[in-house]
């Protein structure tokens, strides 16, 4: 995949950080020793992505390179290395589905199938309505509540075909469900309820 295939076809002419973000950049860069400002490249890319509808235009990459006194190619290297940085526009709801072994064992295929059935999209694609994008990702680090679907910054856990459908319904209606396990368990509690240390349970 050449660079042209990795980045958006329609690039904005220019990019500028908002004044709040400019202040934030000052704060971030100050964390690193003098001359090591290049270390701030990832937080800055993240800021740019958040500011720019969840994707980073090339103008932002060039701006960040200039701000951090880096070669443009160095910033592009970082931006293409991490799947978390989007170089193409994505939908309002950016779905990152974990399909690594624990999630897969716990039925991530069903979750993927549900999304496919609903929007007809596979990994790396955006729905016809333009509001949903799907990306298959590696382990999201919440295996105890597998399978996981990350929607923008939030994790939805313990999904199966039906609950994925319900989650997508809610998102389509712009009324997101509460974050966390869709089965209602708190954190990573055992699914069948607490079986030990019950004596330590605080009185209700």
């Amino acid at each position: 995949m050449s660079i042209d295939a990795r980045i958006a076809e329609n690039q904005p002419e220019s990019f500028a950080f908002t004044s709040e973000n400019e202040a934030e950049i000052k704060r971030i860069v100050a964390k690193y020793p003098k001359g090591r400002q290049a270390s701030a490249v990832m937080p800055l890319l993240d800021l740019a992505q958040r500011q720019h509808d969840n994707w980073i235009p090339m103008a932002a990459i060039e701006l960040i390179a200039k701000k951090l006194d880096m070669a443009e190619i160095r910033v592009l290297e970082v931006a293409t290395f991490y799947t978390m940085f989007n170089l193409k526009p994505v939908g309002k709801y950016f779905l990152q589905a974990c399909t690594t072994t624990p999630c897969w064992l716990r039925g991530s295929d069903n979750m993927m199938r549900c999304i496919k059935d609903r929007f007809g999209i596979s990994s790396g694609e955006t729905s016809a309505c333009g509001r949903f994008s799907l990306l298959e990702v590696e382990c999201l680090g919440a295996c105890v509540n597998a399978p996981i679907l990350q929607v923008n910054d939030d994790f939805y856990e313990d999904l199966d075909y039906a609950s994925t459908g319900a989650l997508l319904d809610a998102l389509e209606a712009d009324t997101p469900l509460p974050v966390g396990s869709v089965t209602g368990r708190s954190g990573s509690e055992a699914t069948g309820g607490a079986t030990s240390l019950s004596a330590l349970k605080p009185a209700e």
């Binding site: 995949m1 990795r6 190619i73 290297e77 293409t80």
Partner: peptide, 12 residues
């Protein structure tokens, strides 16, 4: 002239 670089990762 830092113009060459490696984009993407792994097999890509």
């Amino acid at each position: 002239v830092p113009e060459l670089g490696a984009i993407g990762r792994g097999e890509n």
